[in-house]
Amino acid sequence: MLTSVYRLVRPRQFELVFKDITLDTSHVIVHPVRLSICNADQRYYQGLRAENILRKKLPMALIHEAVGRVVYDPSGQFQEGTLVVMIPNTPSETDEVIAENYLRSSQFRASGFDGFMQEYVSMKPDRLVPLPEDINLSVAAFTEIVSVSYHAIRRFLRFSHTRRNVIGVWGDGNLGYITSLLLKIILPESRICVFGVNEYKLHDFSFADDVFLISEIPDDFYLDHAFECVGGAASSKAINQIIDHINPEGTISIMGVSEDLAPLNTRMILEKGLRLFGSSRSGRKDFLGLINLYKENPDVVNQLEKIVGAEIHVKNIQDIIRAFEIDIHKIMGKTIMIWEN
């Protein structure tokens, strides 16, 4: 069975190739229907990764946030036409200690092998999770990034002490929005405070208990724990500001991705006895838990609808380029490709 694959061959240049899919009893064939553009996709598209990494990774089909429709399942686990979220993390082994998304042997779509910019995708059944009926497909398309926040919060609940009166989230972008929303749903008794640089973005965080510009944090404001969702060159500043305002023995969850090393105030990390941990990607357990959260708390999906940005019908390479270029200039929100290939 032939499938069309849209691969990035060099920054801002895509190429259509055809790949043969072997039909067997251990894989499900899925047709992607909505794809969500992530910052990681943009770093490849714009050539913002190191030259040696681009040479190693490309050509490659982008996109690791997507939902699709089952078209063929010889295992009988999914009915034809079932809408599913596709899990990009692809483990080849299990470990009783290390989660699937941290195993060095695991592969991740759109980071080393082809992502979901394909006509059809062959996947193992355990990499697919059925979606709730009537869910907004544009929200469902970025379930993966929501599952990353869900994963980080699950780990936070394991690592942190139980005094969770005040929790701060640094970052007023998509990741900060998603993380603070889930925190408010999962820990409704906690005071969730969001810290950002754009006042107009902070207005969207209506579910948060407080919002602050990072230039206007009161000197006597302290919190129990914090999540860093900034990334990039500003991640160091954000983490050090958290260190200044966090109470002793607090926990800091680091989620923002930076290409550069970040200098940290290790003296105060030691003096306050802080615990820092990093989280990246997610696994099947996180997707299952998040889908259950969607079912139990429909308001989560309603709030996530607020960060659906441009929705672009995509039929060819020119449409793909247009979607990525529009995404570059967005102020807030997730750019969704309605995949018609």
Rank of each mutant, 00 (worst) to 15 (best):
Q318M: 04
P74N: 10
F212D: 03
I326W: 06
N101A: 12
L8N: 02
Q77T: 13
S235R: 11
S258T: 09
H313C: 09
I291D: 07
W339C: 06
I331Q: 15
V5E: 03
T162V: 12
S215F: 08
L128V: 06
V33M: 09
G168T: 10
L2D: 08
D134S: 11
A66R: 04
A233M: 11
F205Q: 00
I153F: 05
K272D: 07
G232Q: 02
E311Q: 13
P248Q: 07
P218H: 08
Y72E: 14
M255S: 03
C229M: 05
R12W: 03
R34H: 10
R275P: 07
Q318E: 15
H329N: 12
N136D: 13
K56Y: 15
Y45I: 02
V85G: 11
C193I: 15
V67F: 12
F113H: 13
D210W: 09
Y177T: 01
I317P: 00
K272S: 01
A40Q: 09
K124R: 15
I331S: 15
R158S: 11
Q303C: 08
T94A: 11
A234R: 09
D299A: 14
E144I: 00
N316S: 05
V300Y: 03
N52F: 13
S26G: 14
I214R: 11
K295Y: 09
E199S: 13
P263F: 04
T90N: 14
L2C: 07
A234N: 12
F221P: 01
R49V: 06
S279R: 03
P218V: 09
E65A: 07
S122A: 12
S258E: 04
M332N: 14
S122V: 04
Q42P: 06
V257T: 11
V166W: 01
M332Y: 15
Q118W: 05
M86H: 07
R281N: 15
L137N: 00
D220I: 10
H27I: 02
M60G: 00
I252H: 02
Y6D: 00
S206G: 10
G309M: 04
N265R: 01
H31G: 05
S235Y: 04
F324Y: 14
E296S: 11
R109Y: 07
Y45C: 01
I87W: 08
S180C: 07
N297I: 15
L261V: 12
Q318C: 00
T162W: 12
R43K: 14
T335R: 01
G112S: 07
V197G: 14
I312S: 01
R10K: 15
I98D: 05
P125C: 09
Y200W: 13
I178G: 06
G68H: 00
H245C: 03
F78D: 04
K315G: 09
G309F: 05
I153A: 00
A141F: 08
G196H: 07
T90E: 15
I246Q: 01
R267C: 09
I312K: 02
A233Q: 13
I239G: 05
S206D: 12
H313R: 11
Y120H: 05
L223M: 15
Y102N: 14
R104E: 13
V30S: 01
D73N: 05
V257S: 09
G176S: 06
E271M: 15
M337P: 03
V70M: 05
R322W: 04
Q13C: 12
R10E: 15
D224N: 11
E228G: 02
S190E: 03
N52T: 15
R10H: 13
